[in-house]
């Protein structure tokens, strides 16, 4: 099992900015954990995974509109809002 990983690539995928100390620490700890995971690579396993749910039932409910949180409740917990809408940093540049 391959255990090499690129901490910068992972941090980018996970949208995390890591300090140099964090990178060194997590690389070291994750290597240890991945070494421990090698028992999985050696194991004799069934060819395909069944969904590991004990009682399998289709539990999709009917798509019926119901009550949900109102605009006020949603904007109240948002980090920033204006005129009943959640505001975020500019997404599209003026030029584009």
């Amino acid at each position: 099992m391959a255990k090499g990983f690129d901490i910068d690539h992972l941090a980018k995928l996970a949208r995390l900015q890591l300090s140099a100390e964090e990178k060194a620490l997590y690389s070291n700890q994750l290597s240890q954990v991945l070494t421990y995971f090698e028992t999985l690579a050696r194991a004799d396993l069934p060819p395909a995974a069944n969904v590991a749910q004990v009682i399998e039932e289709s539990a999709l409910r009917a798509d019926i509109p119901g009550q949900s949180l109102g605009v006020e409740a949603v904007t109240k917990i948002a980090p920033a809002s204006r005129d009943g809408q959640i505001s975020v940093p500019r997404v599209v540049d003026d030029e584009s």
């Binding site: 099992m1 391959a2 995971f37 999985l40 690579a41 194991a43 396993l45 069934p46 060819p47 395909a48 995974a49 069944n50 590991a52």
Partner: peptide, 11 residues
């Protein structure tokens, strides 16, 4: 190597 094998082990 990891996630799919783990699902198989889970089964």
């Amino acid at each position: 190597a990891y996630y799919v094998r783990a699902l198989r082990a889970r089964s």
